Simulated scan of single mutants.
Amino acid sequence: MVRFGIIGTNWITERFLQAGRTVEGFEAAAVCSRALERAEAYAAQHGVPHRFASVEDMAASGTVDAVYIASPNALHAEQAIRCLDLGLHVLCEKPLASNEFEAAAMIEAAKRNGALLMEAMKTTFLPNFEAIRDNLHRVGKVRRVNASYNQYSSRYDAYRAGTVLNAFDPTLSNGALMDLGVYCIYPIVRMFGAPKSVKANGVMLESGVDGAGSLLLQYEGMEAVVAYSKITHSTVPCEIQGEDGNLVFDKMSEPETVEWRNRRGEAETLTRPQSEHTMRYEIEAFMELVRRGATESPVNSHEVSLATIRIMDEARRQMGLVYPADRNRP
């Protein structure tokens, strides 16, 4: 049994709970919120037995082994470091932090305390992502990756009407790159490592965050083209192009269909069975690491998290996208 404390009360924590309850040994033990009334209401709604107004009280209670952090991006580092220093393992929603400085401090806290810190990027644990990686050799020498995640945000309607919700608030380290672009960048880094160079463009909104953007990641002999948006929508598939064939899949964040194609027009379906509760695979992996006493995931490693946040830091620098959290960097 791994007992989880939940930090954050929103739609993604509901998905987490739904997925976790399909995993043997998962227990939702506590909810933590600075507003105790909110924690109590959320815990009662979802059948979670314990509620706390502080991480310190939750850790001291002895009711949890690990925490799942799904608070706004700007709070990830502070909350994760406090949890790690209190001896709790941490599964932290993507992006891991606001910037590289914060991410490095989180990783240092994990090492200092011998605790597990893993970024909750579900994509890299999905059976269909594994299908892509397992068949990568079939395309021959990779020359280009086309990765996109363009999903019109329901919160953008409110923005257009004059109300800036969390998704478009720079004080929370939000915006399209952090919310959607990361789903393209992280899997690319997992497959191909850190790029040699980054070129970025962004469509900036008046609130101070990006509504859409694109990145060109340059590798030795290949490039990765990333397009993301919260202000437009697209159903264009993603593709890995090689000299001997292509891998085509429907979505970068959550591939549901995967196909291999060659230049002669021949195609083969590579799609694997995959749970509708797509977060369950990262939860299973995290729980197994906790049981083994591991302090780092070999899949969602600290190295992958740092390489990803460095790319996003550089992209933001080129776009002129600055967060209040950046002021804490040396």
Rank of each mutant, 00 (worst) to 15 (best):
L96H: 08
H302A: 12
A59M: 00
A307K: 13
K230D: 15
S148A: 13
N73E: 11
T123F: 09
P330N: 05
I309W: 11
L84E: 02
Y159V: 05
A200F: 01
V31E: 05
K141H: 12
A103Q: 01
R327N: 04
F52D: 01
V142G: 03
F26M: 07
T278H: 13
R38C: 00
G47V: 05
I185T: 02
D65L: 00
E266D: 13
Y156Q: 05
A19M: 03
C83Y: 02
G25N: 09
A227S: 13
A70H: 06
D326F: 00
D65T: 00
D313C: 06
V2N: 00
S214M: 12
K196Q: 15
S153H: 12
E259F: 12
I283Y: 08
L116Y: 08
A109V: 07
C83M: 08
G8M: 04
M312Q: 13
R155K: 12
Y42A: 08
A212R: 01
V67G: 07
T9W: 01
F26S: 07
K230N: 14
R310N: 07
N73I: 15
V182E: 07
V198R: 09
G47S: 07
R310Q: 13
I107S: 02
E296G: 00
L91M: 15
R112L: 04
A70Q: 11
A28C: 00
H46K: 02
R51H: 10
A158M: 11
H76G: 07
G175A: 08
T163S: 12
A43E: 04
N10I: 07
L215A: 04
M191A: 11
R155V: 09
E220M: 08
K141V: 11
F129D: 04
F129W: 15
S173G: 04
M106I: 00
V189P: 08
L84V: 04
M121E: 14
E239S: 11
A224W: 10
F125K: 05
E256F: 12
L217I: 06
L247P: 05
T13P: 05
A115Y: 01
H46W: 15
E119R: 06
R264W: 13
S54T: 15
Y149W: 14
Q218M: 13
F16N: 04
Y186T: 06
R138W: 05
G265C: 09
E100P: 02
P49I: 00
L217W: 10
E254C: 14
A109H: 06
P72Q: 10
A315P: 04
L180K: 14
V145R: 08
A28Q: 07
G140F: 01
E27F: 09
I185E: 03
D326G: 05
G211I: 02
L247E: 02
E259H: 12
E314W: 08
N246A: 11
A53N: 13
T278I: 12
F168I: 05
E223W: 09
V31I: 08
D134G: 00
K111M: 06
A66E: 03
E254L: 14
A43D: 03
V189H: 10
I231F: 09
T163F: 12
T278S: 12
D179Q: 14
I309C: 09
V48A: 01
D244E: 15
Y183L: 12
H89V: 01
L136R: 03
R272D: 07
N174S: 15
A110M: 06
E303R: 13
